[in-house]
Amino acid sequence: MAERRLIALALALLGLCALFLLWNLRVPMGFILGLRAEKLAALVMVGAATGAATVIFQTIATNRLLTPGIVGFDALFIFTQTMLVLTLGGAGYAALADTAKFVVESALLMGAAMALFGILFRKGADDIIRMILTGVILGVLLRGLAGFAQRLLDPSEFAVVQQASIASFNAVNPDLLGIAAVVLACGLGVALWLAPRLDVAALGRVQARVLGLNHDRLVFVALGSVAALVAVSTALVGPITFLGLLAASFAHALLRDHRHIVLIPAAALMGAAILVAGQALFERLLGLQSALAVIVEFAGGLLFLALVLRRRAR
């Protein structure tokens, strides 16, 4: 049953990709198709990486409300961007080759994300309230530090940071797509390899250990894969806090299955489908009147509130 739904979701994504590529296609077709294909690749990769990473993160945290973005990863990205511009200077930052900038940012984010997740999961994520509070407070601290550092920037440098803080698919460097694809494929491969262990980890740390799972090692490897997926996708286009929550929630609701071997691909497909559909509507119908990330954040924020309120009502 879940497998059939997964196939249907894959077919729906293929349909959306075709729509994105071919809707309102005009001459010169080859040129426009090339541009759209590059954007489509970025949309699919970022959506898939974010969806898969969120499912893994939620399983490790044994909580379906949490995402890396919500517990401080996005604040970490803005802080990293600000510090890079502050230390290199606006000119130095702009002079960096795109590939070098992307690799440095990804590596910095990956290391910082592992440190952040390491703090959050220090006691095995048994205490969800402690983890959320730590994540939120660290997020506030990092945003505060970034805000302070931004006051030291001149207006042009500040504009660079502001631009990087909002996700955009309109200016993705095609040279970076190949590097991102390799890292994301590795991250997704590790995630699927971990899938049977993640099924056990979903029962909670103690129960998983009772069943013979080396839980601490699993958490380390799984968070490494999450860090790689979110770091590279964020370095590619910027942060979209609630995309992962949307993708993971819809994947759970659609599949109604606990197996990660189907959940991870479903969340990946769902994340890609949300971005492709959103970008297609936003570009072709709304005439680029807003940013896709803003719409995703709005819908995801509403879903987050709905999930929190539904839990309180129970």
């Binding site: 979903a202 029962l203 909670g204 103690v206 129960q207 009772v210 759970h252 109604r256 299955d257 606990h258």
Partner: peptide
Amino acid sequence: SLLTQSQGAVPRL
């Protein structure tokens, strides 16, 4: 094997 006091169950399991 050990059965603990509070067992977490995966939603819809």
